[in-house]
Every structure is written in C-alpha cells, then in structure tokens.
Design a protein around this nucleic acid. Sequence first.
DNA 1: GCAATAATCTCGCTGGGCGAGATAATGCCA
DNA 2: TGGCATTATCTCGCCCAGCGAGATTATTGC
Lengths: 156, 156
Amino acid sequence: MRPEHAGNVDDQDAGMRLVHLLRAVTVELDRMGERFAADNALHPTDVRALICLLDAARTGTPATPGTLGAHLGLNSAGTTAVVDRLERLGHVRRERDTQDRRRVLLKVDESAVTLGWTFFGPLIHEIVTLMGRYDTTEQATIERFLSDVHKAVTQG
Amino acid sequence: MRPEHAGNVDDQDAGMRLVHLLRAVTVELDRMGERFAADNALHPTDVRALICLLDAARTGTPATPGTLGAHLGLNSAGTTAVVDRLERLGHVRRERDTQDRRRVLLKVDESAVTLGWTFFGPLIHEIVTLMGRYDTTEQATIERFLSDVHKAVTQG
DNA sequence: GCAATAATCTCGCTGGGCGAGATAATGCCA
DNA sequence: TGGCATTATCTCGCCCAGCGAGATTATTGC
C-alpha cells in the first residue's frame, strides 16, 4: 500500500491531508444524499435526477427525458422509469413541447423545490454563515483551491 | 425556486458560489468513481467497498464482512454478495480469524491496491502538486475550511 | 406524400440488495 | 461440564432498478 509511484506522500504531508479531508467531505455529502433519498421514498438516482432538473430550472434550460438521461448516464428505458417514479410522487410533470411535439418537457413541481430546500437548506445556510468567519482573501484562496481541484478532476 | 427561507443568498454571494463549487467537485469525484467502476467490471458499491477495505488496511483496523456491511449500509446478505464479487475478481481474500473462528477477516489483494493507485494516483498526485502553489498560510486556510465543512456535514 | 430521422415509451430479462431464516462458533451461568 | 442465548456469516427467495431491443409517434427533407 502506498507504492513508490505515488511519490513521497504520507499523512504528514499537508497536500495528502487535504486530499483525505476532501474525500471525507464528499463521502459525507453522498451519505447525506442517501439519507435524503431514504427519508423521501426516493432512490439515489431519483435524487440525482431532481438535482439535475432543479439546476436546469435555475439556469432556464429546458429539460427533457433525453437530456436528463444523458446527464444521469441512463438509457431511454431507465430514464422513463425515473420520470415515472418522480411523476407518481408528484415531483415532476410531463408536458408535450408545443414547438416540437415529439419532445416531452419535464417541469419540477414546487413541492420538489421546497422538499430539497427543507433538507439541504440548513446545511447550505450553515456553510454560508460559516464563510462569514473567513476574510475576503481567505475566501478567495478557498475559491481558487476549489476551482483548481474542479479543473483537475474534470480534465484528469 | 430559491425561496425566502433560504436567506439572502444568490450567485453573487461568495458563500453560495463556494457551495456550488463544492457540489460540482463532489459530483465530478462521484463520476470518476463510476468511470473507475465501469472500467474494471465493478459496481459502484464494490468500489466503495474497496475504498473502505483499503482505508481499514491503511489504519491497521481488521476488516470483516460485518464492519464492511455497516460502513456501506448493506445487510448481511448484500454484504456477502459484495465480498463474493470482489473475491471472484481476486481483489479480496476471506480468512477465518484464528482468535474468534466465527469471524472472517477480509484481506485486500495487492492487485486491488495497485488498481486503485493507477486510477486515482494521478489525480492525487496532481492535487498534491497543485498544493505546492499555495503558501503555508493558504494551505492552513483551506484545511480549516474543509474541516469546518466536514463538521457541518457530519453533524448537520 | 413517403422515406429517413428523432424522441420517447413498452417489453422481457439480468442482477444488486433485502428480509427471513439456517448454520456455526463463542460466552455465560448454573 | 452442559445447555442456552448471542454473535458472525451465509443461503434462499423475492423485488425492482436499469439494460437491450424493438414499437410508437412526431418531424424533416426530398
């Protein structure tokens, strides 16, 4: 374990400590998502779908089963199943696109929005509040770090 | 979307920008895990199991089906299935504990360790390298931030 | 209008994970 | 020491998420 090609890194190393911390954070966030799913009779995939749809709504991008399936990495059959489940729970409505009547537009219901906020809102609020204890340069440093990591993860 | 009880936060807000960045990072890390799983004929759960077992090996904690299942949130049947799959692929061995012969100790094979490193090693190395471009106080700031977030996510 | 294309849905199947119960080793107490 | 409750793991049968293949309906180009 921890072979040579990994370089001279161990837990004493600050960089390595940060890697482990970052992983711990992502693990916990995942766990939270699962808890949210379990509490609301949703599957993890459904949660990811909701997040995807809420993002689309936020940016004004029209969402369809096609775009949703692409984002989730599901095929059309699986995507239909996800939308069926969300629709059955009243979180999403199907609406035929009047422009291109082959397409179905997915509209998130207000219930889903508030559902998401009641669960994740407190955490978001806590983190935002928490940021108040960092001065401007510190916030800039953190933002630079997260951007760097995001770039590394995206293109790596 | 973005209702009142969320407080006065929008994308202009630095805290909110960081929240979105953090989420983007975790999403990408998840995606990476899925790619790793797909590339190696593993299920996402198997990857999580491997990570869990590698962590245990790193800290010297003995790993058993019981502890593994607890960490993954699986029941005993599901846990047995995971271990079966990993054993079939040669990543894990079952060994009866000589102290308490009811228990089975899980030993990760060297192949699994190198497998993990060849996939995640480059990213880890890149992040560690990347940290070289931050001075000591900046690194401390980032570490404080990640610890704070971790605390918020854990107890929230 | 008719083929070719596009978006979504239906059907049948595979396999991960669960609940319930079986099996085996251990610890406790008389 | 024997017997019973407990602990750790495994087996069996079931449910359902997701896949592949193909059907259905709408659109576009000739």
